[in-house]
């Protein structure tokens, strides 16, 4: 009994530590995998991609690729999000630095609602020595990103990010809502039922162990 209580305490402690860890969570992606280089940004070239969807609550946009090369520093990227229907700018940002393969631009203003959009990327300082590459996957020309009206080989990956780092505790309502989608009877009940089932099975196992001993 004492052992079980100790184990339960250790497990609860582990869960608290893991779930209290704060990080910036994705609010959405365009689901493009990373398999090829799609675009090479040089000089004043601007690469745009249609068929995007803004995600409400997003405050940053993360691109994957490579910057610099040949000794040149990784250049800053200028990102613009446009309304797909009107072409009006919805948000802008600059990814000033790269973290590994990622360049993250904080968007101003943050995205308030979901709507079809176009995402455009260019070098923030066209005169910078090094260029940058964007990674994504091949796609038919009609769906590909384009540069100067000419379709490229595919689509680049776009990840929408939340405003600030959040612990799993504060992010739990979002996870509960997402778990509830894609099911026969969608809704928050799915995550709650899963939690209840897991808790019941654990309680049953514990009771059985105590009784058997």
């Amino acid at each position: 009994m004492a052992t079980l209580a100790l184990c339960a305490l250790a497990l609860a402690g582990g869960l608290v530590v893991v779930l209290s860890h704060a990080q910036v969570h994705q609010t959405g992606t365009n689901d493009v995998p990373l398999s090829v280089q799609v675009a090479a940004l040089q000089g004043t070239q601007r690469v745009c991609q249609d068929g995007e969807h803004t995600v409400a609550g997003s405050a940053a946009l993360r691109l994957t690729g490579a910057g610099g090369g040949g000794g040149a520093p990784a250049p800053a990227l200028a990102v613009e999000v446009l309304d797909a229907a009107t072409g009006a700018p919805l948000a802008r940002g600059v990814a000033a630095s790269w973290q590994g393969l990622h360049a993250t631009a904080r968007l101003r203003p943050p995205i308030a609602r979901e709507r079809p959009a176009r995402v455009c990327v260019a070098l923030a300082a066209p005169a910078s020595a090094g260029g940058a590459a964007l990674y994504g996957a091949t796609a038919p020309p009609a769906r590909s990103a384009s540069a100067g009206g000419r379709p490229l080989d595919g689509r680049f990956r776009v990840e929408w990010l939340g405003a600030q780092a959040r612990s799993w505790w504060s992010f739990a309502p979002t996870v509960v809502a997402r778990v509830g989608r894609g099911h026969a009877f969608p809704g928050a009940w799915v995550a709650l039922a899963a939690a209840l089932l897991t808790s019941t099975s654990i309680a049953l196992a514990t009771w059985l162990l105590v009784r058997s001993s």
Binding site: T3, V18, W168, T198, A205, L209
Partner: peptide, 28 residues
């Protein structure tokens, strides 16, 4: 009794953290 309880507790913890891994993978 101690080892038995520890084995089951470890199995439960293993299962629980695996569920969290899958939740983080698909929903966060």
């Amino acid at each position: 009794p101690l080892v038995g309880a520890a084995i089951v507790a470890l199995a439960i913890a293993h299962d629980l953290f695996a569920q969290l891994l899958v939740l983080a993978r698909y929903y966060a």
